[in-house]
Write a protein that binds this DNA or RNA. Structure first.
Lengths: 210, 210
DNA sequence: CCATTAAACAGACATTTGTCTGGTAGGTCA
DNA sequence: TGACCTACCAGACAAATGTCTGTTTAATGG
């Protein structure tokens, strides 16, 4: 094998190209070169050409900034040219604690805007009719900001006994209540705070009418 | 005035630059030149510089493909690298017939995915509580596909007597009814079809919980 | 040991591309 | 009319950029 771990730098080059495209335009060969501290243009070129070879990039030969992302690669997790727009993973219907790991294999991505870049967001599909009164219907998609600190009255995703549900949070003296927004359902009253695990706060509701 | 209507070509150049950025990278000055059939590079350059002057574009002097979209402008109407994603104009609260022209100056843009590229989409902010039962609350944003042919039972945006409203459409024999989804409101029954102008069909509902 | 390979280095060349200077045509306005 | 403006044309130069040839180093495998 070569002096440097094989493919190690290669992926970093790929990531760099993606970043640069997200900022407006693909980098030049020399920009890649200098970013990685290569002292020869050819070094950067070899990596770029190798990435084209394995299909991770495409190129328009002879043209400036000719390296592009292959079709379909664009909308997976980031968005070129739209810094205020983010693709958040849709984790599907929540089931037993598998939530945190489910990010590895999302069912899809949802475009979200107007959220700070550092916000840890994900999306869920809502089950049940317990939040009808808040305009959240079964099948709706909720965008959730992963945070433990929530305020009274906010709609949250909470994990109770391994089951994740969407409810409105009520902080009473000494205990927590999870209120449905439907007269047919009863509030969940929790004695100790350990029973409930606040996964995050619902920041957006979305419904597609096919 | 000049030989050609002022600013006419200018906007087309701006649109072209946006298109090209959406396809992966900004165009070169000469690419703009040839696309518009200019026989001199300077013609394209003048338009581009003028657009920079008026803030419609930014540039990185001296660098290849240096023209970019200004920050915040990135998400206005298109999305680089994400063909299945579109930005649709938010036309704000609908008022008297101004809807069709309002596209010129949208209040913002909303990211939408999963809609065919040829669909003519726009977004509206919902007023009133007449659709509570359908999970559409005041302040919600609805994404509308502009189409006149609608089916029975679909939620539509209809223009009645100059006022635009969101209602569920009921086609009865000989007449049209616009049903609210709220017991406190009454259906609108229309005798002739001329009174009502179907602006389009609601394909998505969206709500931000700040 | 030697051939092979991947990675990086060195230097150069040709094309692409941004930029500049100057000129022409048609229109407005004082 | 003449000053002035916008749009466009013509030609050229210099910087940026893609591409090529050859060399060196280190690790692998027969």
């Amino acid at each position: 094998m070569p002096a440097t771990p094989p493919g190690q730098t290669r992926r970093q080059v790929h990531a760099y190209v993606r970043e640069r495209i997200a900022e407006g335009a693909p980098p030049t060969v020399r920009e890649v070169q200098h970013h990685f501290g290569f002292k020869a243009v050819q070094s950067a070129r070899q990596h770029l050409e190798a990435l084209v070879q394995e299909g991770a990039l495409t190129k328009e030969p002879g043209r400036a900034r000719g390296y592009r992302l292959p079709p379909g690669e664009g909308s997976a997790g980031f968005l070129p040219g739209a810094p205020d727009l983010r693709m958040v993973p849709l984790l599907g219907r929540v089931q037993a604690g598998a939530l945190t790991e489910a990010i590895e294999d999302p069912q899809g991505y949802v475009p979200v805007e107007g959220q700070p870049a550092d916000a840890n967001l994900f999306a869920l599909t809502v089950r049940g009719e317990s939040m009808l009164g808040a305009g959240i219907l079964p099948g709706d998609t909720v965008v959730v900001r992963r945070q433990h600190a929530v305020r009274n009255g906010e709609i949250v995703v909470a994990q109770v006994a391994g089951e994740a549900t969407v409810k409105r949070l009520r902080l009473k003296r000494g205990h927590v209540e999870l209120h449905p927004e439907n007269a047919l359902f009863k509030p969940i009253v929790l004695d100790g705070r350990d029973e409930v695990n606040i996964l995050g706060r619902v920041v957006e509701v979305r419904r597609c009418l096919t």
